[in-house]
Computed example of a mutant assay.
Amino acid sequence: MAKITAPFQIEGTIDDLNFFIDEYGINRARLKPESNMTTEKFKTLPSFHKARMQNIEFGQCATKAKTFRLLAAEFNKQAKDGRFAGRANKLLLEVLQEDQKNELGSRLFTEGIKTKFGQEFLIGFESNKHRPISKVFIDNNKWEIRNNRFSHPDFNPANDINWPEEATHVTFNLAIANWNIENDTFSTNYGQPIIISKNEEKQNIVLEVVPPIEQNLQITFIFIGFSKQRGSRDIALHRKYNTATIIAYQYL
């Protein structure tokens, strides 16, 4: 390792040189270690068998996740964080791991989703992790989802919602997606949005949507979005303030 003598410190990598600060605060440089790993070794060495099997399963879930992210695409456009895709991959991998029929490397998402726990993993998945429904509704015991209907009795706009500072209006909507897991196809029905001012009186919120006619895995999403009134215009706030959550499922 070489000691760096300079009026400033350098950290990072340039070509084959790695610059770092050692435990004594001395700026040093060293050659990057050469890796003896090759694609051929990874494919053939027994010691990498488990990693190869995990890689196969992850690839399967990443492919399925492309469709999963589209199930409520209209909601996700308006409520999504930067790690949405990665979290979707992780969710589907957890579902796949519930496949008890097949061994590591041969486990299938289509089997895992048929199990009780595999399906329950879906509930509460947030497109925007920073604004989960549990933080948007002040009291989550007031609302319920039943028979393709979301209801919130005696909703008090000013007190029952955690409002972003600039928001003057909130939009609620519901969607049900039917996902044919085997064919990896889907259809989604969206409801009619309800827009409520922060200053309105108490009221009953009822959201309904007719599910798709196909009967496979049906997933229900709720959207809660915020906007601010400027003159006669209603301007949507950034998606980081909004919520899109899976609140129900039914495997038909």
Rank of each mutant, 00 (worst) to 15 (best):
A79T: 01
D81H: 03
R83A: 10
R83N: 06
F84Q: 05
F84A: 05
A88Q: 07
K90F: 14
L91Y: 11
L91D: 03
L92R: 06
L92W: 09
E94R: 03
V95A: 04
V95W: 11
Q97W: 12
E98Q: 07
E98D: 09
D99Y: 08
Q100R: 01
K101C: 05
L104M: 03
L104V: 12
S106P: 06
F109C: 06
F109Q: 14
E111V: 14
E111P: 09
E111H: 08
G112L: 14
G112R: 02
I113E: 07
I113T: 10
K114R: 09
T115D: 03
F117Q: 11
F117C: 05
G118R: 10
Q119N: 14
E120Q: 08
L122G: 15
I123F: 02
F125C: 14
E126M: 15
E126W: 14
E126Q: 10
N128V: 15
N128E: 14
H130K: 12
H130E: 13
R131D: 13
R131W: 13
R131L: 15
S134E: 13
F137D: 00
F137E: 11
I138V: 09
I138C: 05
D139F: 08
N141Q: 12
N141P: 03
K142A: 03
K142W: 05
W143Y: 05
W143N: 00
W143E: 00
E144L: 07
I145T: 01
N147H: 05
N148Y: 00
P153I: 13
F155A: 00
F155R: 01
N156P: 07
N156G: 09
P157D: 13
P157L: 09
A158I: 15
N159A: 09
D160Y: 15
D160K: 04
D160P: 11
D160R: 02
N162V: 10
W163Q: 07
E166K: 12
E166Q: 15
T168F: 09
T168W: 11
H169Y: 12
H169E: 14
H169V: 07
T171V: 06
F172Q: 00
F172V: 03
N173A: 11
N173V: 04
L174H: 00
A175T: 06
A175M: 03
I176A: 04
I176F: 01
N178A: 12
W179V: 11
W179M: 10
W179C: 06
I181C: 15
E182A: 13
E182W: 09
D184N: 10
D184E: 11
D184Q: 14
T185C: 01
F186D: 06
F186L: 07
N189Y: 00
N189I: 00
N189M: 00
Y190Q: 00
I194K: 08
I196E: 09
K198A: 06
N199K: 03
E200M: 03
Q203S: 04
Q203T: 07
N204P: 01
V206I: 08
L207M: 09
V210Y: 00
P212Q: 11
P212C: 08
P212K: 08
E214H: 14
E214K: 09
